[in-house]
Design a protein around this nucleic acid. Structure first.
Length: 623
DNA sequence: CTTAGGG
DNA sequence: CCCTAAG
């Protein structure tokens, strides 16, 4: 699967996060990437759910179609377009590039695969190949080179123009590589964008041409949220860089996104390395970027307001935030200056308009969707997969999307207020403004949805809700009779209607989205916090017993002794629990909050064991 | 694998 | 209790 980055929005893959570089805000989106705020990797991962999952689907599906361009589907849902504007097959972005992978870095609108390396949700491989480190290194290098090359473009000359008049094949022919933003002209995708335009009807929501594609891209954007400046580019460039996607119709990237070519590698290998590659690449990029005087040659600039606001919003909206917006300059003609990249004050220009005549323009900067589980038979076409994904995403979004408007950290509750009354008006400082889009239908959209905690069969742990989309095969020739052929073997529950519909629906269809827990703890890979499951008294007892026998310190053994290997308790859990038990036991009864879940007798044993093993060999050798 | 420490 | 960095 390919995610053409939205270069105009400064996507830089995963090269963000811990970087130190302070970005040039204007028109150097990638260069801006790194702000000095440390972010939780967890958060990052969360933002990639949709992306990863979709990638996984594509990867699974196309694993045996690799190397062949489908060339048939141009609906653009997940389609990518090569430099000639022709449709190419979806590529999984957890592709492992070959060892001799080359960062082309020359072609606009090319796939940017490596940094999007996704973890296969059905990762089956557990053995580690020796090549891994080499490969990882290679990939990381490649990504870095790509970025470096890009940086070569945008650090030269003006922020927009490139001193190297390279030409880019961008769909509708060659275009000077500078002065363009956004998507490939041929690509029927747009970023999710909501704006109010001057002169237009207010609240005209211009949705993307292709919902899912937009979502995908937006997901990508989300990943890069922090590293990007607002989508504001100086229009000094004669090339007519313009903020407004819709006005221009076509936008292409001011930057050249590199494609890391991949050989028809072993799918298993890809899956195997996906996670590590991604991680390594990210780390490597971050590392490189974060250094002073890095290759990317960042120009020092303070963290943008956009980023600060984003951070604030992240803090405010820890969960379920699926979209962020930012406000943009209201005037279309207005040259977006550098300061406009750092300030989001609305309508800074003159006539302080009356509330009636003024419009405020908003642009969704990023968008994320809940994770989707999609089942598609292997003999489905890539095109149909794209449609499935598109429909699923669209449906998910359409399902029940709750939009909240935030201003200075407060959700504006009163829907009847005018924007002006709410303080959102032309000329107002809207730095602290934000939006959230939440999918309300994550649960309960399907009556038969089973909460994960309620379906925890033996051996299945860490289930999590997922929206599930299942393929409905138009022709009976499909091997649907063999569930094992499904790419997602982790699905533990079929939605009944999905199953029944198989083979009966004459057309490709997306079944009702269902919430289906994912089995196997490995499925919880993408940063989803595992469900809190307090230790029961019985478990505490087991733990105490184990520690009494083994002592503390050998938590792996303790864990195994107490809970066996098939329990979701980890030795870290045990360690933590023990720590807490000791602490609990050591404080006076009066200070213990609530009822001491572990009875005092147990706590006494805890203390006894603690003291015993403290005196004893702190960490006794295993026999 | 283990620990420490933040969330 | 969860998660992750660090050793």
């Amino acid at each position: 699967m390919v995610f053409r980055k939205m270069p105009g929005r400064g996507s830089c893959g995963r090269g963000r996060g811990r970087g130190r570089g302070s970005g040039q805000v204007r028109a150097t989106p990638c260069a801006t990437t790194l702000a000095p705020v440390k972010r939780s990797a967890r958060l990052k991962k969360k933002q990639m759910y949709a992306l990863d999952l979709l990638a996984t689907v594509a990867e699974t599906l196309s694993s045996d179609q690799e190397g062949s361009s489908s060339g048939t589907d141009t609906d653009g849902a997940v389609a990518s377009y090569n430099s000639n504007g022709t449709s190419v097959k979806s590529e999984q972005f957890d592709e492992v590039p070959p060892f001799n992978s080359t960062a082309l870095g020359q072609n606009c609108c090319e796939e940017y695969t490596v940094s999007c390396a996704g973890t296969c949700a059905s990762l089956r491989q557990t053995n580690i190949c020796k090549m891994e480190s080499l490969l990882t290194q290679n990939v990381a290098d490649t990504v870095s080179e790509s970025l470096t090359e890009k940086s070569d473009v945008f650090v030269k000359g003006s922020p927009v123009s490139c001193t190297k008049p390279r030409r880019l094949d961008c769909g509708l022919g060659t275009i000077p590589e500078y002065g363009t933003i956004g998507v490939c002209p041929r690509c029927p995708t747009r970023s999710v964008e909501v704006k109010q335009e001057d002169g237009d009807r207010p609240e005209v929501i211009k949705s993307q041409v292709d919902g899912s594609a937009a979502t995908l891209h937006s997901s990508v954007d989300t990943m890069d949220l922090d590293i990007k400046p607002p989508f504001v580019i100086s229009s000094e460039s004669t090339s007519g860089v313009h903020l407004d996607v819709h006005e221009k119709g076509h936008n292409s990237s001011p930057f050249c996104f590199s494609k890391v070519q991949h050989a028809a590698g072993d799918c298993r290998t890809r899956r195997l390395f996906a996670t590590r590659i991604r991680k390594a690449a990210r780390n490597k990029i971050c590392g490189k970027m974060s250094n002073k005087g890095s290759k990317l040659n960042f120009r020092g600039k303070k963290i943008s307001t956009a980023r600060r606001r984003v951070q604030m919003h992240r803090t405010m909206l820890k969960t379920k935030k699926v979209a962020e917006f930012y406000s943009a300059q209201p005037s279309d003609e207005e040259t977006l200056t550098e300061t406009s990249g750092t300030s989001f004050s609305m309508g800074g220009q003159d006539p302080p308009c009356a509330s009636e005549g003024c419009h405020v323009k908003f642009v969704i900067k990023s968008f994320n969707i809940p994770e989707l589980l999609i089942e598609v038979p292997e003999n489905a076409t890539v095109g149909s997969l794209k449609r499935i994904v598109r429909d699923a995403v669209t449906k998910t979004i359409e399902g029940s999307l709750r939009v909240s408007v935030l201003l200075q950290g407060q959700i504006i509750q009163d829907d009847n207020k005018t924007l002006h009354q709410a303080g959102i008006c032309h000329g107002a400082k809207l730095d602290s403004m934000g939006f959230t889009l939440e999918c309300e239908a994550e649960r309960g959209s399907h009556p038969s949805a089973i909460p994960p905690e309620e379906m925890e069969p033996v051996g299945v742990s860490d289930v999590k809700p997922l929206s599930t989309v299942k393929w409905e095969e138009p022709s009976p020739s499909c091997s649907l009779s063999n569930p094992g052929d499904y790419p997602f073997e982790g699905t533990v529950q079929d939605t009944s209607e999905s199953s029944q519909a198989i083979g009966t629906a004459p057309t490709l269809n997306v079944t009702e989205l269902a919430i289906v827990p994912f089995s196997k703890s490995k499925q919880r890979d993408f940063g989803q916090r595992r469900k809190r499951r307090p230790f029961s008294v019985a478990e505490v007892e087991l733990l105490v017993e184990a520690v009494e026998q083994l002592g503390f310190g050998r938590w792996k053994d303790v864990k195994f002794h107490a809970f066996g290997s098939n329990n979701e308790r980890t030795y870290v859990d045990c360690k933590d629990k023990w720590k807490n038990l000791v602490h609990t036991a050591s404080i006076p009864l009066q200070l213990r909050r609530g009822q001491a879940i572990p009875p005092q007798e147990l706590l006494d044993r805890v203390l006894a064991a603690q003291t015993y093993w403290s005196v004893q060999q702190p960490k006794p050798e295993p026999r």
